[in-house]
C-alpha cells in the first residue's frame, strides 16, 4: 500500500513538473536609473523568453504580465468637505503601504490573464498592491480613499495599466517598454514578470531596478537631511551673494 502511495505521489509530482516546468528568462535595458539635475523620466525596455523544457499545452494562450513597482510607503489620504462655506480637509485615512509608482504591462486584459486567487497570491493588480487595514471608525467608506489614491496617481501618470503593451512572439519571445515619469522617488524598484495560462501563473521572475539621485542632487539631498544647519547657512549665503551681485551688476550697467 505504501509503495502504491509513493508511486502515486511521484506520478503526481512529475505531472506537476510537466505543468510548471516553464521558465522565463528576462532582461532589462538598464537596471540602474540615476536621477540627475536634468532628469525628465526614463524608458525601460523589458524583454525575455519563455523557456519550455517540456512540450507546452497550447490549448489556452499564454499571457505575460510585467509589473514594475517603486518601494511602498505609507500615505495619508484626506477628504475635503464643505464646512462654514469653505472646503476643508475633514476625514483622513492612512494607507499603510502604497507604491508611489506602479506599472502593469500585459499581453491582454489583466482580468483574462489572471484569476482572482492568483492576483491575491501574487499581488499583481494595483488594488492588490495597496494595503490599507487601519481606517478609523469615523470613516464609513474607507474604499473610497483607496480608490482616490489610485485615481490621483493614474492622473499623474504614476499608476499605469497597459493592456496589450507586451508583445509575445511565437509563445517564446516577449518585450515591452515602460515609461517612468520624471517625478520618481528613490529606491529599489521591483520588476516582476509572470507567465500565465488559463488564469494561473505558470512561472515568475523578479529583479530590481535601482533608482537613486546622483551627482549634485545626491549631495544636496544628503546635506539637507544630514547637516541641515550647514545646508540652511549655504542657502542663505547663496541668497545674500545673489542679492549683492545683482545690485552691483546693475549699478555698473546704469552708470
Amino acid at each position: 500500500m505504501r509503495t502504491v502511495c509513493a508511486y502515486f505521489l511521484i506520478t503526481l509530482f512529475c505531472f506537476a513538473r510537466a505543468v510548471f516546468s516553464q521558465e522565463i528568462v528576462m532582461g532589462l535595458s538598464k537596471n540602474e536609473i540615476g536621477i540627475t539635475a536634468f532628469f525628465d523620466g526614463s524608458e525601460i525596455l523589458v524583454f525575455g523568453a519563455v523557456k519550455a523544457t517540456d512540450e507546452l499545452s497550447l490549448n489556452e494562450p499564454l499571457g505575460v504580465v510585467v509589473a514594475i513597482a517603486s518601494p511602498r510607503r505609507a500615505v495619508m489620504v484626506r477628504r475635503k468637505e464643505k464646512k462654514f462655506g469653505i472646503w476643508v480637509n475633514v476625514d483622513s485615512v492612512e494607507i499603510d503601504l502604497a507604491p508611489s509608482f506602479y506599472a502593469v504591462a500585459t499581453t491582454g486584459p489583466l482580468s483574462q490573464l489572471l484569476d482572482t486567487v492568483e492576483d491575491l497570491r501574487h499581488s499583481i493588480s494595483v488594488e492588490r498592491m495597496i494595503r490599507s487595514v487601519g481606517a478609523p471608525m469615523s470613516v464609513d467608506d474607507p474604499v473610497a480613499f483607496t480608490k482616490a489614491i489610485i485615481r490621483i496617481r493614474q492622473d499623474q501618470g504614476l499608476y499605469q495599466t497597459l493592456p496589450g503593451a507586451v508583445t509575445l512572439q511565437d509563445n517564446t519571445l516577449f518585450s515591452t517598454s515602460v515609461t517612468l515619469p520624471a517625478n520618481l522617488v528613490e529606491g529599489a524598484y521591483t520588476t516582476r514578470i509572470f507567465l500565465t495560462q488559463d488564469g494561473k501563473v505558470l512561472a515568475q521572475q523578479e529583479t530590481k531596478i535601482d533608482v537613486r539621485k546622483v551627482g549634485i542632487e545626491r549631495w544636496l539631498y544628503n546635506l539637507a537631511h544630514q547637516r541641515p544647519a550647514t545646508y540652511g547657512l549655504l542657502s542663505l549665503a547663496i541668497a545674500i551673494f545673489a542679492g549683492w551681485s545683482a545690485a552691483a551688476v546693475f549699478r555698473v550697467i546704469r552708470t
Partner: peptide, 16 residues
C-alpha cells in the same frame, strides 16, 4: 478656490 467645490476632493500627503 476655497469656496468652489474642487474637482478632486481627495488629496495625498506623505507621512514623515
Amino acid at each position: 478656490d476655497l469656496i468652489v467645490e474642487p474637482s478632486e476632493i481627495f488629496n495625498l500627503s506623505g507621512i514623515g
